[in-house]
């Protein structure tokens, strides 16, 4: 996994021009496929560069090597009925990133096994951003078609996404960090909006994570914070992300988050 994270981080650092996930690992290596599942949407983060600011890897499509590889990973490690929320989110995030960043050539998309409890169905015709469900508990994990669940203003989404509004800030920050791979342009706008409504709480989570020397959590929370409006300037977020990356002692997943935060900023500070 460190190799894949390193590869993504290098691509983000360098602009992503020659990035190819498939070049980072052997396709039949189950460990490599597992790494893709764990890193989730981030394995395709370099493709988002092209959408964000020009650049990014030369176009690959869903049918290309990277698309095939991701489909293998999705098929090899579908979240089971008793999967953790994070596993389900990560799965969905990776599936959505494939749709978002590797354009479909008009085929039926990937043919991986549908997971129990609501995997994304690329053929159902809905915009990818609206088919996400970030529920905290399995019983809240709606079918793939849950209507706009991460929008607090949407009554239909109130049950599944109560945590976005109500979770105490330490828990909110922990969850947000676990979902940091979804902090890519256009990938989960409703989630981003829900978190942006709790910027101060996320900022407190960043403080707590750094104090605990939980560099991975801090970097993940920081990724959401760089996109949020009204980040308190006394947080010192930019210096904090540099600090976290250097203090982590070269952890490639921390580096990936830190570089992604630099590549995909947004919002502003006050």
């Amino acid at each position: 996994m460190a190799d894949v994270a390193n590869g993504v981080a290098l691509a983000l650092d360098g602009g992503g021009g020659s990035y190819a996930l498939s070049a980072l690992l052997a396709q039949d290596d189950r460990v490599a496929l597992a790494a893709i599942r764990v890193l989730g949407a981030d394995v395709l983060a370099p493709y988002a560069l092209g959408r964000a600011a020009g650049g990014g890897p030369d176009g690959q499509s869903a049918g290309g090597p990277d698309g095939q590889l991701v489909r293998r990973a999705l098929a090899a490690y579908p979240p089971g009925a008793d999967a953790s929320d994070v596993s389900r989110w990560s799965y969905q995030g990776l599936a959505e990133a494939t749709r978002a960043f590797l354009p479909d050539e008009g085929t039926s998309g990937y043919s991986g096994t549908e997971p129990a409890g609501g995997g994304a169905n690329p053929a159902d015709g809905q915009p990818y951003a609206d088919r996400f469900s970030y529920s905290l508990s399995p019983e809240n994990a709606g079918p793939a078609g849950s209507p706009n669940p991460a929008n607090p203003a949407s009554p239909a989404g109130s049950a599944a996404d109560a945590w976005l509004r109500d979770a105490p800030w330490p828990k909110l920050s922990h969850r947000a960090s676990q979902l940091a791979a979804l902090a890519l342009p256009g990938l989960a706008p409703a989630l981003a909006a829900g978190l942006a409504a709790r910027t101060e709480d996320l900022a407190r989570g960043f403080v707590r994570a750094v104090r605990r020397r939980d560099w991975l959590q801090a970097a993940g929370v920081g990724r959401w914070l760089v996109r949020a409006p009204d980040v308190p300037d006394s947080l010192g977020l930019e210096a904090g992300m540099v600090y976290v990356r250097r203090m982590s002692g070269g952890d490639p997943r921390v580096a990936l988050h830190a570089l992604a935060a630099r590549r995909f900023p947004g919002g502003g500070s006050r």
């Binding site: 509004r165 105490p168 800030w169 330490p170 909110l172 709790r198 101060e200």
Partner: peptide
């Protein structure tokens, strides 16, 4: 985290 902390900035 098992603390029953309120939603912070509310």
């Amino acid at each position: 985290m098992s603390r029953g902390r309120s939603a912070g900035s509310r």
